[in-house]
Design a binder for these strands. Structure first.
Lengths: 193, 193
DNA sequence: TATCACATCGGACAAATGTCCTTTTCAGTT
DNA sequence: AACTGAAAAGGACATTTGTCCGATGTGATA
């Protein structure tokens, strides 16, 4: 349940199914990989060969706009999946995934991911739920962001994730909120954070 | 393809499957309904009994925040589906759907929608694609909005949908962009629209 | 230690946006 | 025709946010 409100996205059900069930059913189709901080796991406007599910660590998902601005879509953590939209639609990736901490992840070939969707009803249902949750979360977050002051937004993040300032750079927080670092600092000062 | 970039969401593939295939396979499970402008088709924080797919007309999907502000998530048109997230997750609705023009729609009981997901692989795939498309579109739209000036955003909308001003109220456009009508008017004047 | 790159911090000013308000327009109703 | 309510329009001012900039601190490395 708390999966739904946090700025750092997780998906316990999906991770559990992967580690408890899927890993025993698939022979070498589920690869384990490790990424270092600042490493690009998936790049924008590229073909996507693998679907990833995070086992541990944290990554950011962001889009770089034509004017050079980055916009952080979400922060991913345990159980969060990415590359799945591109696997389903066959499109090029529309965002960039970059490790913030060391990231352990499972990766599955996009083609095999689609096979699993067809052949494994439990997996199919988990992915449907994962997509539905992402949409739900995204809608609520953007509605809140757009309709509230910067200070309200910061208080909300602070409440969701008290270690925010220590673990995520100011620039990343600003890019997540769609503001500049200068504005962020002003609001933090005003709030006495 | 153009389905993906427009502010008014459509889904031709899904509508086609419903009208060409599904309607012949399901006995009375697919109901046709009509809504008048300003009618609330689906209300926020309510249990969702039906999944809707729009046959014709236009509706807005918005969230009302605690401070009274409305934020318009998307505009829906032919083939667009809603209520599906709630059917999949069993949650209460998180947004409100309101008809702008007269809306013709198909509705399916939430429970039967889930049965279809399990029993009809083609339908399942179409829904997966629909969710993936919505996520993709939402991510791109918000990244663009946050990283560009209001005037850039307006020019982009104008290009996507030239009849914008005539067909959608100023208040709705402002709520879609997360700004006030005053700001909208200023930018329109500056652009000479 | 010295140096470099990088994040952080905040002042001063400019630009964008919101708030509050009055006026106008227009469609629907009596 | 007269009236009404809703949408639109824009002036005046306050507030928020961005831009530009130089200062400070810190961790890595030669």
């Amino acid at each position: 349940m708390s999966d739904v409100i946090k700025m750092i996205r997780k998906n316990a059900d999906l991770l559990q199914y992967i580690t408890k069930v899927l890993i025993h059913k698939t022979d070498n189709k589920l690869l384990e990989v490790l990424y270092s901080p600042t490493e690009i796991i998936l790049d924008q406007r590229k073909k996507v060969f693998y679907v990833h599910i995070i086992k541990s660590g944290m990554a950011k998902c962001y889009l770089t706009e034509d004017n050079g601005n980055d916009f952080i879509q979400e922060f991913f953590s345990e159980g969060e999946i990415f590359g799945e939209l591109e696997a389903i639609n066959g499109d090029l990736s529309f965002c960039c995934i970059e490790a913030i901490t060391p990231v352990q992840a499972y990766k599955i070939e996009a083609q095999y991911f689609n096979t699993l969707l067809e052949k494994d009803p439990t997996f199919n249902k988990l992915i449907l739920k994962a997509l539905a949750k992402k949409l739900n979360y995204t809608a609520i977050r953007h509605a809140y962001n757009q309709s509230h002051t910067l200070e309200d937004n910061l208080l909300r993040l602070q409440k969701q994730y008290p270690a925010l300032i220590e673990q995520i750079s100011k620039q990343d927080i600003a890019n997540y909120l769609g503001i500049t670092v200068r504005s962020l600092n002003r609001s933090l000062a005003k709030l006495g954070i």
